[in-house]
């Protein structure tokens, strides 16, 4: 195939203990480490492996957001992507707008595969891939833990509630990936240097004919309910007694 398009979302790093800010308008991001959404990193790793096997010629990474997203795109280029596209907007976007933006790029680039993370670890939405597939009128295979390509089809094993489901989709298609698909490579210093020379194009969200204006309003961010402090027991009889006291045995 000619091209694989991979989405990279800039998110608060998964090791950060996220805190709601004081006025409830969002979470604290000042001085917080930002990274590529872990699922998207896996998506990129898979695309790179497909290319390295000789099954694809070009891997393009794309991010939607502020110019800060260039960092994540550069990391993607350092991992091995050939070029990057930033759909630039300083405003918050919702999943449908992101899917519409991806569709515009898909229409320009005509990739045979779009690979995205199954969800972003910030909004935990799990929506964009499915929405893009719908708007594109193409198949979706979500939560992939194995991807096998043969000719014009992809056979995908999906992690589902009851186990593993295998489906076959015709290309072009949208795949979203789960954690067990692969382990992303580490970026090496020389690759970071090389990545600086790779093309990173920018297109304004507005120039794609889209406005950010999220339809769903984020009214209030709150910390989750705290659990009451528990008790420590010293041994198994103590544990059994504590469970009995709560009527759980």
């Amino acid at each position: 195939m000619e091209k694989i398009l991979v989405g990279l979302k800039r998110v608060v790093d998964y090791n950060v203990r996220v805190r709601v800010n004081s006025d409830g308008s969002g979470v604290e991001t000042a001085g917080v480490k930002m990274s590529i959404n872990p699922f998207d990193e896996i998506a990129l790793e898979e695309a790179l492996r497909i290319k390295e096997r000789g099954d694809a010629k070009e891997v393009i990474v794309i991010s939607i957001g502020s110019s800060d997203c260039q960092q994540q795109l550069r990391t993607g280029l350092a991992m091995g992507a050939d070029r990057a596209i930033l759909v630039a907007t300083d405003d918050a976007t919702d999943s449908l707008t992101r899917a519409r933006a991806l569709l515009e790029i898909v229409n320009r680039e005509s990739p045979e595969l779009v690979i995205l993370g199954k969800q972003a670890i910030d909004d935990d939405n799990n929506q964009t891939g499915q929405m893009l597939a719908a708007l594109w009128d193409r198949p979706q295979a979500t939560s992939a833990s194995t991807i096998e390509l043969s000719g014009n089809t992809a056979r995908v094993i999906r992690e589902v509630d009851v186990g593993l489901e295998t489906i076959e989709v015709d290309l072009p298609a949208v795949l979203t990936v789960d954690l067990r698909l692969n382990e992303p490579r580490y970026v090496k210093l020389p690759d970071i240097m090389k990545a600086k020379k790779k093309p990173l194009d920018e297109v304004a969200l507005g120039d794609l004919g889209l406005t950010a204006a999220p339809a769903i309003t984020e009214v209030l961010f709150e910390p989750p309910a705290e659990r009451e402090k528990g008790v420590m027991v010293d041994d198994v009889p103590g544990l059994v007694a504590a469970l009995n006291e709560k009527g759980l045995l």
Partner: peptide
């Protein structure tokens, strides 16, 4: 955020 915040 993995349940670290609740959004209305």
């Amino acid at each position: 955020y993995a349940g670290n915040a609740v959004l209305t």
